[in-house]
Structure formats: structure tokens, C-alpha cells
Design a protein around this nucleic acid. Sequence first.
DNA 1: CAGGATATTCAAAGCGCTTTGAGACCCGCC
DNA 2: GGCGGGTCTCAAAGCGCTTTGAATATCCTG
Lengths: 344, 344
Amino acid sequence: MNLKQLSDILNLSQTTVSRALNGYPEVREATRRRVMEAARRYNYTPNTRAKGLATGRAMSIGHVIPLSRKHEILNPVFGDFITGASEAYVATGYDLVLSLVPDDVQAEHYRNLGAKGNVDGIILHGPLVSDSRIELLREIGLPFLVHGRSSGIEETYPYLDMNNRRAFARATRHLIELGHRRIALLNGDESMDFAARRRAGYEDALREAGIRIDPSLIVSGEMTESLGLQAAGEMLDRPEAPTAFLTSSIVIALGVERAGFRRGLAIGRDLSIITHDDALSYLPNGSDEPLFTATRSSVREAGRRCAELLLASIANPDAPPPQELLEADLIIGRSTGPAPRKDI
Amino acid sequence: MNLKQLSDILNLSQTTVSRALNGYPEVREATRRRVMEAARRYNYTPNTRAKGLATGRAMSIGHVIPLSRKHEILNPVFGDFITGASEAYVATGYDLVLSLVPDDVQAEHYRNLGAKGNVDGIILHGPLVSDSRIELLREIGLPFLVHGRSSGIEETYPYLDMNNRRAFARATRHLIELGHRRIALLNGDESMDFAARRRAGYEDALREAGIRIDPSLIVSGEMTESLGLQAAGEMLDRPEAPTAFLTSSIVIALGVERAGFRRGLAIGRDLSIITHDDALSYLPNGSDEPLFTATRSSVREAGRRCAELLLASIANPDAPPPQELLEADLIIGRSTGPAPRKDI
DNA sequence: CAGGATATTCAAAGCGCTTTGAGACCCGCC
DNA sequence: GGCGGGTCTCAAAGCGCTTTGAATATCCTG
């Protein structure tokens, strides 16, 4: 069923039907009702492509997920982010076009997305430190919004980020106040901006407390269970083992916990853990009382907000670029406690 | 840059340029090269919407993820699936349109997708037992392919599934051969088809061995770490505790493991665990030797294959509906061993 | 009830592309 | 040198929608 068929049935012109459907004022109420009614009856839905061609708007947003050739890991966070974004899109009739693109063809892909005209805007995922894609997107002229930030980019650009630095500084400070001195950091890949900022926060707090930064207590890499298991295992076997771990994701923390279990260490007593918790739906941090003490910030909420901001800036292109910084909560669970006596 | 501008620059008609670009034979090679060259130089990419309008093909595939209102959990498996599917799409120039749709508006959403004409086909995720969406999609007439199957649907429909029943029967048999008699099953929500089949496989093997099926050893629900922790914890505290667990996902298995740790049980000796392993990129089952004994089937591979099958059946609508069944591997890790002596 | 204002409706031009049917050009052959 | 056949190129008609500018009803006032 297309517009012409519908208007023929109604004995109206296409113009009138279109206007009636799109809420223009030049249509008598009775006519509009009649049209609406018929549209529903015949299950008429305007063809998106044709509508897009005519209006110049694609009614869809592109999400481009970088896929490293080296470690082809799709960030598990992504699913929740998308869920949140989707909420905003569904509410406004937008579609979500997803592309997973290998690093080496990213630039080309962004250019194509612009030229092909099938998205009205782009959400940029997984920004690196000094990420060149930001400049590229500005150059292309397609509206965009960065989920995260990129240190080292001077110009202002639209973003929504979580205050990683402050969150990790707070967490580190909390451990220090509990008497811990040897605090390990198991971080994500530090070429990613978020991980670099988390490390900066960790170092801020240590410096502040006059604690030497020990590079042998810092590991960064893919955020998997085995990273936690292996790195923590190795560190715990040292004579001067850390008494506390700060980890960038719950999955890593689970690995640390296991390394502790294997060595007969009680979590929260012999060994403290604070993790960042993205509040992923399928990895809840305990059901009632949180398992891990954690800096928590819902990535789903971030997804929703990102989508809202991008849609708003598409609707109003002259507004200044949106920039938002979410703060994480520090929630206390059962994985932290005072540093063991002998270590104070 | 659009076709007209490009053809003006080249002093050619739009037709000629279009034909040159799309590989039609009526263009001299020299001309074609000249056109190609210019297209690259000016970074011309045909507008998808316009092309779609003219050809009637959207060059994109819709993935509809059901989002239960009750437990808003996005299956973590989904990320890897999409990654796989993406590989097939990128190779053929298709886009991936994603929608997360609450259960109660699914039917409407499928209808709209059809009418709006912005996808050429649909991948149906998360089929339930007797899933009515399959009938709906057939009625709508849009090409589709089910990832999984739906028991209780009589007509043939295109699908790609993993042989869940056989996989779980094999795993259960393996435990039985190791001497286990009290084997618990921690399953996904059994209104989902895959979970129902897994349970059937588990029961097949028990029946075969003449072991009574004990409903108190079967739990199904959301596949989270805490499900594993709680269900296993509760079972292990019984006088007649199970000696082995079969779980539907690694996350559950991690929970079981933790419940074991907490009770001082050695995994692989006091307690055996077999899990299904979707080979998720961010949840590797150990780095060299597998942590868990597992039935393994890469969901990413499944994604790639689903996409390929759907694209093939779009290209050739008269072919019989593709139906494929993947077999899972049973890989032996360190989480299984003979049943403890006293229990034999 | 004429005349102008207002409320409705219409025909037609685009949006950027593909594709059809026809025309121009060039070649070699008789 | 004219003609048939191949090779290229072209103008124009759609694809389904929005939107402009004009036409037609309808209504109200004096």
C-alpha cells in the first residue's frame, strides 16, 4: 500500500493525504480523521526511503564500533549501551544502523556513511587518546557525538563521558583510607581514553597520599576474566604482594577474586577489591547487597543520554555542542576492608 | 557530490556514469576507467535512499531483539552474534539495522519493518517454544531466518540452530560415565526454545542411564553469575548435594565455581562442572587449557552463517528455505573429574 | 447576493538514482 | 558508397514521498 493507492481509495489527492498524516493545519479535522482511519485500516506506513529522499533526512543514527584486527573483542559494554540508545530512538522513530568496522578502514567507512546519506548522525564509540576520528567527523560535516572523550584533542566537540579520573581517584583514596599501601591497578588497554583517565585518577590519589607509584602493580590489557586471574595471581605470589586491587571491570574483578580463592585468601579481609561497575544487565554486582565495592555508572543510561543529546543537536544544529560528564557512585560492598594488620 | 554533478564534470550523461559504475557492459573500458577514477577522486558514493527507491532493495538487514519488559536483559551472546553477522554484511555491502523491541509491540514492529521498506530481510532472535512471530513473518512476506528454532511450529521455515539437545545429552552422558548420579542443571529461561531443548537433552541422558529426574536439581532463569552462585549454593548445602553441575552459560558456571570455593570444594575433584560455552570473545574459557569442560559452539560463527544464509535466500527467493544445524564440540577442561568416592 | 477572506484540495515539481527504448556513431563488408 | 550490425550514449520515465504555488469550495460580511 503506497500513498497513491491510499489517496485513490479515499478519493483525495496525495497532497491532502500526506498533509493529513503529517499533521499539517490545512486539512479539515473530519478529513484528517477519515485519512488516519483508512491508513490504519489498510496498514499503510510511508516508505522510509522515499520519505528520506524527499525530506533529506534518513531517520536513522549510525553506530560505528571499531573492531581491532589484533584483538577482535567486542566490548561487552556495548550491548547495554545500545539498549539504552534504542530507548531514545524508539521514542522518536529513529532507526539504529550498526556497523562493526576494522580499524584500518574506519576513515573510509565514516566518509561513506556521510556520502551514502543513510544516517543523520553518528555515535562514536571507544575513543582513543588523541583520536583522529574526531577531526575526521568534523571535516565530513555529519553530526556526531562521542561516547567518551579523547585527551589531546584541542577543539571542542560534542561528547558524553563518565568522569573516569575522579571515580578512580575516589576509589583509590577509599582504599588508602582503609590503610592499603600496595594497591594494584588492573586496567583496560591504555591507548583507550577511558583507561588512560582511570590510571590518571589512580595516580592522582597515590601521589596525593605520598605513595610511590609502582609500575609493577599496574597491568593493562583486554578486560577479561583471565587477565584478572593471571595478573592478580602473579602479583599475589610476590613477597610484597598487593593488599588491594582496583579493576576496570567486573569481569576482571571476578578473575582477581578467583586468584584469591585459589590462595585461600578471604575477599574483603585478606584482600580488598574495588571494581568499576558498568551496571551491565547480565552481570549484576550481586542481587541485594553488592558483591564488590564499586564505582558504578550505568552504561545503559549513558547510551540513552548519548542518543538524546545527538538527536537534540540534529534537531537544532546551531546550538553549541553538547558536553556532559556523568559522575560515578562509589558503592560499598563486601569486597573491601581494612588492610591486613601486618601490612600497616 | 551526486550523480548529476559527477556526470557534468565528466561531460557524460547520468546513464552512462551509472552504467559505468555498476558494471554494465555497454560502456567502453576507457570510459569506465575514467568514471571510476573520477568517482574516487571526488569521493562520490551513490545515495543509498535514492538507489533503494529506484531498485526496490534496501541493502540492509533488520535484527530485532526482543526486550522483555519483566527482565530487561540483553543477552550477552548477542554482541558476538552481531559481530559475526557483520562480517557477512560488510563483505556484501549490506547494512545492519538494529531494533530492540519490547515484547508487547513486536508484532507491530515487524509489520512496520515490512511496510516501511527499509530492510530486505530479518533475522529473528531468541525464538520461544511455539513462537508466533514465525507465522507472522511468513504472513508479512518479508524474507527471514530464525537464529534457533521453535518447537511446536509445524511448517518449515528457514533457520540456523545449534543442536542443543544433543550437546546437552552428550555432556550429561559424560558426567554419568564419570560416575556422577546427582547432576544439577542450571538452565536459561525454559520458555526459550534453546533452553527447553537443552533440558530435553539432559533428561534424555538421565533416562537412558536409568537415573531418576529430580526436579529439585533443575533451575532455570536468567543466566547470570548470581543465578549460579545462589542456586548452586543452596543445592550444595543440602544433605544430598549434587556432585556435578551442568550450566547453560559460562557466567552461570562462574557462579557455581564461586559457590564451590566458598564451601572449600575443589572444582574438578569435589565438584564437577560442565558448561555450555558460546565462545564469547570477552569471556574466554581459559587461555590455553580450557577452564571448564564445555560444549562449545561459536555464536559468532553462527552469526556469520545466519547472515550468509539469509542473504543467499534473498538473492534466490525460490530456493527451498535454508535449514542448518550446527553441532557443538565437547571439550574437556579442568572442571570435571570422577564423582567423589563416597558418592558412588 | 456580490465580494473578499478563509478553508480545503489539487497538480506538478523535485529528491537521486536505475533502467528502458531510442538515437548516434563507427566499422567492415559487399 | 551504402548498408547492416555493434558499440556507446542519451533523454525521459519511474521509484514513493514532500512541498510549493495555484485553484476551488465555503463562509461571512455589508
